[in-house]
């Protein structure tokens, strides 16, 4: 079931991103897009050395949706910053497409916890900013951005100021911004952490749809167990600091996933399996 799931995501990728297939040959289906090999990271603060990550190994295949759950302070953001190239690991390396990640890359998008929007730009200007920065075709980008904004329910807010949007709307705009540059990997750091439970559930359903349609691989950081199980093909559970991978759990739920998925007994069983780690550790559920 699990391998079927990832084959399916492979298929999504290749039907969508024809221009990318030269970079990731279809022959080598097992080849990972992002790979962490023995990544450790220590911060040097006022209280001495803090080991945030301890020898993390993980791999994400093209088109795959991977979630990482862990309690607060276990090093999830650190892991994501290393994956994005914003932060260099103390030891070990993150590899993207076989190359060591030393700086951010244009084919890796990132969505921050609080949908960073620049207040001096309108929503559509914010969303197309990556294209503008890359000196790309801005006119085409605006058209595409308008289409995507409509798709995520932001029709009528294209020329609004970011401050006129709610937190959920801003986060949707941030997703559009990340998708616009057609990334092969999308890194998301608790993107819905600041949202209320209802909006969050709605955003999850939308994200599942968007990820399935765009075919880009996603690495999602969350501390919501149901979010991880609902969205991911695989979920990694991290230990409290220093962060290690406690367990890798395959999520063989059928796609496309929708609200009904959350009602199935399999869903509940998988959630329970993830939750066990936190009950024994005494961390948040």
């Amino acid at each position: 079931m699990r391998s079927a799931g990832s084959d399916e995501s492979q298929a999504r990728r290749h039907s969508e991103g024809g221009e990318l297939s030269a970079v990731s040959p279809a022959i080598n289906a097992a080849r990972s897009l992002l790979e962490f090999s023995a990544v450790s990271h220590a911060y040097y603060g006022a209280h001495g050395e803090i080991l945030a990550l301890d020898r993390i190994d993980l791999a994400i295949r093209p088109g795959e949706f991977v979630a990482i759950v862990g309690s607060s302070g276990c090093g999830k953001s650190t892991l994501l910053r290393i994956a994005s190239g914003l932060l260099a690991p103390t030891t070990g390396a993150a590899l993207f497409d076989g190359d060591v990640v030393v700086r951010p890359r244009s084919d890796v998008g990132m969505i921050f916890q609080d949908a960073v929007m620049l207040p001096w730009f309108t929503v559509i200007e914010n969303v197309t900013l990556p294209i503008r920065v890359a000196l790309g075709d801005l006119a085409a980008a605006r058209l595409e951005a308008a289409r995507l904004l409509d798709l995520v329910g932001l029709a009528g807010f294209h020329d609004a100021a970011p401050s006129e949007l709610s937190g959920g709307m801003r986060q949707r705009a941030a997703i559009v911004r990340a998708l616009l540059s057609k990334p092969r990997l999308l890194l998301m750091d608790e993107p819905f952490g600041a949202l209320d439970a209802l909006t969050r559930e709605q955003m999850n359903i939308e994200l599942a749809r968007i990820a399935e349609a765009s075919g880009c691989a996603v690495l999602l950081i969350t501390h919501s167990i149901s979010e991880a199980v609902f969205l991911a093909d695989r979920t990694f559970v991290m230990t409290p600091r220093p962060g290690r991978i406690a367990e890798e759990i395959a999520i063989p739920l059928a796609r496309p996933r929708a609200a009904e998925t959350m009602m199935s007994p399999d869903f509940a069983a998988l959630c329970h399996r993830v939750r066990r780690h936190f009950q024994s550790g005494g961390a948040e559920a």
Binding site: S84, L86, R103, P104, R105, S106, G109, M110, F112, D114, V116, L118, L129, P130, V133, A134
Partner: peptide
């Protein structure tokens, strides 16, 4: 820092 990170992610000069 968040805005600077955003610009770094976009590979801004």
């Amino acid at each position: 820092a968040a805005r600077i990170d955003l610009m770094r992610i976009m590979l801004a000069s």
